[in-house]
Protein backbone atom coordinates (compact mmCIF):
# COMPACT_ATOMS: atom_id res chain seq x y z
CA UNK A 1 0.00 0.00 0.00
CA UNK A 2 1.37 3.20 -0.97
CA UNK A 3 0.77 6.43 0.69
CA UNK A 4 -0.62 9.01 -1.62
CA UNK A 5 1.74 11.90 -2.02
CA UNK A 6 0.40 15.26 -1.15
CA UNK A 7 2.01 18.11 -2.91
CA UNK A 8 2.67 20.91 -0.51
CA UNK A 9 3.85 24.28 -1.60
CA UNK A 10 6.39 25.36 0.98
CA UNK A 11 5.44 28.96 0.41
CA UNK A 12 2.02 28.26 1.89
CA UNK A 13 3.57 27.13 5.20
CA UNK A 14 5.55 30.31 5.68
CA UNK A 15 3.47 33.33 6.62
CA UNK A 16 3.61 35.99 3.96
CA UNK A 17 6.44 38.43 4.60
CA UNK A 18 5.19 41.93 5.37
CA UNK A 19 7.03 45.06 4.43
CA UNK A 20 8.34 47.42 7.09
CA UNK A 21 5.66 49.91 6.17
CA UNK A 22 2.97 47.27 6.63
CA UNK A 23 4.40 46.27 9.98
CA UNK A 24 4.50 49.87 11.10
CA UNK A 25 0.95 50.44 9.94
CA UNK A 26 -0.17 47.35 11.81
CA UNK A 27 1.61 48.58 14.89
CA UNK A 28 0.00 51.99 14.56
CA UNK A 29 -3.42 50.40 14.33
CA UNK A 30 -2.81 48.31 17.41
CA UNK A 31 -1.21 51.17 19.34
CA UNK A 32 -2.62 54.44 17.99
CA UNK A 33 -1.65 56.46 21.06
CA UNK A 34 1.82 54.99 21.07
CA UNK A 35 2.13 55.84 17.39
CA UNK A 36 1.14 59.43 18.11
CA UNK A 37 3.73 59.54 20.87
CA UNK A 38 6.31 58.03 18.53
CA UNK A 39 5.52 60.69 15.98
CA UNK A 40 6.16 63.41 18.53
CA UNK A 41 9.42 61.76 19.51
CA UNK A 42 10.56 61.47 15.90
CA UNK A 43 9.54 65.08 15.19
CA UNK A 44 11.45 66.25 18.22
CA UNK A 45 14.56 64.34 17.25
CA UNK A 46 14.32 65.75 13.73
CA UNK A 47 13.96 69.27 15.15
CA UNK A 48 16.99 68.78 17.33
CA UNK A 49 19.16 67.32 14.59
CA UNK A 50 18.21 69.79 11.86
CA UNK A 51 17.73 72.84 14.07
CA UNK A 52 20.25 74.95 12.22
CA UNK A 53 18.61 74.07 8.88
CA UNK A 54 14.97 74.62 9.75
CA UNK A 55 15.31 77.57 12.15
CA UNK A 56 14.66 80.92 10.54
CA UNK A 57 16.79 82.96 12.97
CA UNK A 58 19.75 82.87 15.33
CA UNK A 59 18.38 81.60 18.66
CA UNK A 60 20.64 83.81 20.78
CA UNK A 61 20.87 87.07 18.83
CA UNK A 62 19.05 90.01 20.42
CA UNK A 63 16.91 92.08 18.10
CA UNK A 64 15.37 94.83 20.18
CA UNK A 65 13.52 96.36 17.25
CA UNK A 66 11.33 93.26 17.34
CA UNK A 67 10.99 92.86 21.10
CA UNK A 68 7.73 91.25 22.22
CA UNK A 69 6.29 91.05 18.70
CA UNK A 70 3.10 88.99 18.66
CA UNK A 71 2.83 85.89 16.45
CA UNK A 72 2.69 86.91 12.79
CA UNK A 73 4.11 86.32 9.35
CA UNK A 74 7.70 87.20 10.30
CA UNK A 75 7.71 85.48 13.65
CA UNK A 76 5.23 82.64 13.65
CA UNK A 77 5.24 82.22 17.41
CA UNK A 78 6.22 85.80 18.25
CA UNK A 79 9.37 87.11 19.92
CA UNK A 80 10.50 87.40 23.50
CA UNK A 81 11.65 90.41 25.50
CA UNK A 82 15.04 90.38 23.77
CA UNK A 83 13.45 90.23 20.32
CA UNK A 84 14.49 86.61 19.84
CA UNK A 85 12.27 84.41 17.69
CA UNK A 86 10.36 82.03 19.97
CA UNK A 87 9.94 79.35 17.31
CA UNK A 88 13.68 79.29 16.71
CA UNK A 89 14.35 79.01 20.41
CA UNK A 90 11.81 76.20 20.75
CA UNK A 91 13.46 74.31 17.90
CA UNK A 92 16.91 74.74 19.42
CA UNK A 93 15.43 74.07 22.83
CA UNK A 94 14.60 70.56 21.62
CA UNK A 95 18.35 69.98 21.41
CA UNK A 96 18.83 70.93 25.02
CA UNK A 97 15.81 68.90 26.13
CA UNK A 98 16.86 65.79 24.23
CA UNK A 99 20.50 66.08 25.16
CA UNK A 100 19.68 66.36 28.85
CA UNK A 101 16.77 63.89 28.61
CA UNK A 102 18.57 61.14 26.74
CA UNK A 103 21.87 61.51 28.57
CA UNK A 104 20.25 61.40 31.99
CA UNK A 105 17.88 58.60 31.03
CA UNK A 106 20.50 56.40 29.35
CA UNK A 107 23.11 56.86 32.07
CA UNK A 108 20.58 56.52 34.89
CA UNK A 109 18.80 53.51 33.44
CA UNK A 110 22.03 51.74 32.44
CA UNK A 111 23.62 52.28 35.83
CA UNK A 112 20.38 51.04 37.39
CA UNK A 113 20.42 47.99 35.10
CA UNK A 114 23.92 46.97 36.08
CA UNK A 115 23.42 47.63 39.77
CA UNK A 116 20.01 45.96 39.84
CA UNK A 117 21.26 42.81 38.12
CA UNK A 118 24.35 42.74 40.31
CA UNK A 119 22.20 43.06 43.41
CA UNK A 120 20.02 40.15 42.30
CA UNK A 121 22.99 38.07 41.24
CA UNK A 122 24.97 38.38 44.43
CA UNK A 123 21.95 38.28 46.74
CA UNK A 124 22.50 37.80 50.47
CA UNK A 125 23.89 40.62 52.56
CA UNK A 126 25.05 42.58 49.55
CA UNK A 127 21.52 42.59 48.13
CA UNK A 128 20.05 43.49 51.51
CA UNK A 129 22.44 46.37 52.04
CA UNK A 130 22.21 47.63 48.48
CA UNK A 131 18.42 47.64 48.52
CA UNK A 132 18.35 49.64 51.75
CA UNK A 133 20.62 52.22 50.12
CA UNK A 134 18.18 52.30 47.21
CA UNK A 135 15.34 52.74 49.72
CA UNK A 136 17.04 55.82 51.10
CA UNK A 137 17.42 57.35 47.66
CA UNK A 138 13.86 56.50 46.69
CA UNK A 139 12.49 58.06 49.86
CA UNK A 140 13.11 61.48 48.32
CA UNK A 141 10.74 62.76 45.66
CA UNK A 142 12.46 63.10 42.30
CA UNK A 143 12.41 66.91 42.17
CA UNK A 144 13.62 67.28 45.77
CA UNK A 145 16.53 64.98 45.09
CA UNK A 146 17.42 66.83 41.91
CA UNK A 147 17.15 70.20 43.67
CA UNK A 148 19.43 69.00 46.44
CA UNK A 149 22.06 67.81 43.97
CA UNK A 150 21.93 71.08 41.98
CA UNK A 151 22.13 73.05 45.21
CA UNK A 152 25.36 71.22 46.04
CA UNK A 153 26.93 71.16 42.58
CA UNK A 154 25.60 74.46 41.26
CA UNK A 155 23.58 75.17 38.13
CA UNK A 156 24.60 74.37 34.56
CA UNK A 157 23.84 71.73 31.96
CA UNK A 158 26.37 69.18 33.19
CA UNK A 159 25.24 69.41 36.79
CA UNK A 160 21.61 69.24 35.79
CA UNK A 161 22.30 65.96 33.98
CA UNK A 162 23.96 64.59 37.11
CA UNK A 163 21.09 65.84 39.27
CA UNK A 164 18.53 64.12 37.08
CA UNK A 165 20.54 60.94 36.57
CA UNK A 166 21.06 60.15 40.24
CA UNK A 167 17.41 59.67 41.21
CA UNK A 168 16.84 57.47 38.14
CA UNK A 169 19.41 54.89 39.20
CA UNK A 170 17.53 53.39 42.17
CA UNK A 171 14.23 53.43 40.29
CA UNK A 172 15.62 51.36 37.46
CA UNK A 173 17.71 49.17 39.74
CA UNK A 174 14.64 48.19 41.76
CA UNK A 175 12.58 47.20 38.71
CA UNK A 176 15.43 45.39 37.00
CA UNK A 177 16.34 43.50 40.17
CA UNK A 178 12.92 41.90 40.41
CA UNK A 179 13.26 40.54 36.87
CA UNK A 180 16.85 39.49 37.42
CA UNK A 181 15.94 37.51 40.57
CA UNK A 182 14.00 34.98 38.47
CA UNK A 183 16.70 34.86 35.82
CA UNK A 184 19.29 34.05 38.46
CA UNK A 185 17.54 30.74 39.12
CA UNK A 186 17.61 29.63 35.49
CA UNK A 187 20.20 26.84 34.92
CA UNK A 188 22.21 28.69 32.29
CA UNK A 189 23.44 31.05 34.97
CA UNK A 190 24.64 28.03 36.96
CA UNK A 191 26.16 26.69 33.78
CA UNK A 192 28.05 29.91 33.25
CA UNK A 193 29.31 29.72 36.80
CA UNK A 194 30.35 26.12 36.26
CA UNK A 195 32.33 27.18 33.21
CA UNK A 196 34.29 29.50 35.46
CA UNK A 197 33.08 32.81 34.08
CA UNK A 198 33.68 35.82 36.23
CA UNK A 199 30.90 37.74 37.96
CA UNK A 200 31.17 40.68 35.61
CA UNK A 201 30.80 38.49 32.54
CA UNK A 202 27.81 36.65 33.97
CA UNK A 203 26.10 39.87 34.98
CA UNK A 204 26.80 41.84 31.82
CA UNK A 205 26.72 39.16 29.11
CA UNK A 206 24.30 36.59 30.44
CA UNK A 207 21.86 38.23 32.80
CA UNK A 208 21.61 41.85 31.68
CA UNK A 209 20.50 41.09 28.12
CA UNK A 210 17.60 39.12 29.54
CA UNK A 211 16.19 42.07 31.44
CA UNK A 212 16.32 44.45 28.53
CA UNK A 213 12.52 44.67 28.28
CA UNK A 214 11.98 46.41 31.64
CA UNK A 215 15.13 48.41 31.02
CA UNK A 216 13.78 49.81 27.76
CA UNK A 217 10.44 50.61 29.34
CA UNK A 218 12.12 52.47 32.16
CA UNK A 219 14.39 54.22 29.69
CA UNK A 220 11.57 55.71 27.65
CA UNK A 221 9.67 56.81 30.71
CA UNK A 222 12.86 58.38 32.08
CA UNK A 223 13.34 60.51 28.96
CA UNK A 224 9.97 62.19 29.49
CA UNK A 225 10.63 62.63 33.19
CA UNK A 226 14.10 64.03 32.52
CA UNK A 227 12.75 66.59 30.06
CA UNK A 228 10.20 67.69 32.64
CA UNK A 229 12.82 67.83 35.38
CA UNK A 230 15.22 69.80 33.23
CA UNK A 231 12.44 72.25 32.45
CA UNK A 232 11.52 72.47 36.13
CA UNK A 233 15.08 73.11 37.22
CA UNK A 234 15.60 75.69 34.48
CA UNK A 235 12.32 77.32 35.44
CA UNK A 236 13.62 77.62 38.97
CA UNK A 237 16.80 79.18 37.61
CA UNK A 238 18.90 76.17 38.58
CA UNK A 239 19.28 74.50 35.22
CA UNK A 240 20.52 75.62 31.84
CA UNK A 241 21.43 79.32 31.74
CA UNK A 242 20.79 82.16 29.32
CA UNK A 243 21.31 82.65 26.47
CA UNK A 244 21.16 78.89 25.78
CA UNK A 245 17.71 78.07 24.41
CA UNK A 246 15.87 75.78 26.82
CA UNK A 247 12.14 75.43 27.24
CA UNK A 248 12.02 75.73 31.02
CA UNK A 249 14.25 78.78 30.89
CA UNK A 250 12.03 80.38 28.25
CA UNK A 251 9.04 79.74 30.46
CA UNK A 252 10.81 81.22 33.46
CA UNK A 253 11.81 84.35 31.59
CA UNK A 254 8.32 84.96 30.33
CA UNK A 255 5.82 83.53 32.75
CA UNK A 256 6.08 86.10 35.50
CA UNK A 257 6.36 89.33 33.62
CA UNK A 258 4.66 88.71 30.32
CA UNK A 259 1.87 86.24 31.05
CA UNK A 260 -0.70 88.98 30.57
CA UNK A 261 0.81 91.47 28.18
CA UNK A 262 2.63 89.02 25.90
CA UNK A 263 1.15 85.58 26.59
CA UNK A 264 2.93 83.99 23.64
CA UNK A 265 6.22 84.29 25.53
CA UNK A 266 5.34 81.65 28.16
CA UNK A 267 2.57 79.75 26.32
CA UNK A 268 4.55 78.23 23.44
CA UNK A 269 7.49 76.90 25.48
CA UNK A 270 4.91 75.52 27.92
CA UNK A 271 3.15 73.74 25.08
CA UNK A 272 6.45 72.35 23.80
CA UNK A 273 7.23 70.87 27.22
CA UNK A 274 3.73 69.41 27.54
CA UNK A 275 3.79 67.87 24.08
CA UNK A 276 7.25 66.38 24.48
CA UNK A 277 6.54 64.80 27.85
CA UNK A 278 3.14 63.57 26.65
CA UNK A 279 4.75 62.09 23.53
CA UNK A 280 7.47 60.26 25.42
CA UNK A 281 4.98 58.92 27.96
CA UNK A 282 2.64 57.60 25.28
CA UNK A 283 5.55 56.04 23.44
CA UNK A 284 6.83 54.45 26.64
CA UNK A 285 3.41 53.05 27.49
CA UNK A 286 3.10 51.53 24.05
CA UNK A 287 6.56 50.02 24.32
CA UNK A 288 5.64 48.50 27.65
CA UNK A 289 2.51 46.96 26.14
CA UNK A 290 4.52 45.52 23.30
CA UNK A 291 7.33 44.12 25.40
CA UNK A 292 5.32 42.80 28.32
CA UNK A 293 4.07 39.29 27.38
CA UNK A 294 1.17 39.47 29.83
CA UNK A 295 -0.17 42.67 28.35
CA UNK A 296 0.61 41.53 24.80
CA UNK A 297 -1.64 38.43 25.11
CA UNK A 298 -4.69 40.43 26.11
Amino acid sequence: MSTPEIAVDSAELVPPKRSLAEQLWSLCRRQPLGAAGGLVVVAMIAMAVFANVISPYDPEANSFEHMLSPPGADFWLGTDQFGRDIMTRIIYGARTALFVGFTAAVVGATAGLVLGVASAYFGGKFDLFFQRVMDVFMAFPLIIMALAVVAILGPGTQNVIIAITLPFIPQCARVVRSSALSIREIPYVDAARALGYGHARIILRHMAPNVVAPYLIMLTSFVGQAILLEASLSYLGLGVQEPTPAWGLMLQGGAEEYAESAPWVPVFPGLAITLAVFGFNLFGDALRDLLDPKLRSR
Binding site: E60, A61, N62, F82, E242, P243
Partner: peptide, 10 residues
Protein backbone atom coordinates in the same frame (compact mmCIF):
# COMPACT_ATOMS: atom_id res chain seq x y z
CA UNK B 1 21.02 91.18 36.76
CA UNK B 2 19.89 88.37 34.48
CA UNK B 3 18.29 90.68 31.94
CA UNK B 4 21.37 92.88 31.65
CA UNK B 5 23.66 89.83 31.73
CA UNK B 6 21.89 88.29 28.76
CA UNK B 7 22.11 91.62 26.91
CA UNK B 8 25.83 91.96 27.69
CA UNK B 9 26.60 88.51 26.35
CA UNK B 10 24.95 89.45 23.08
Amino acid sequence: YKVVGTWLID
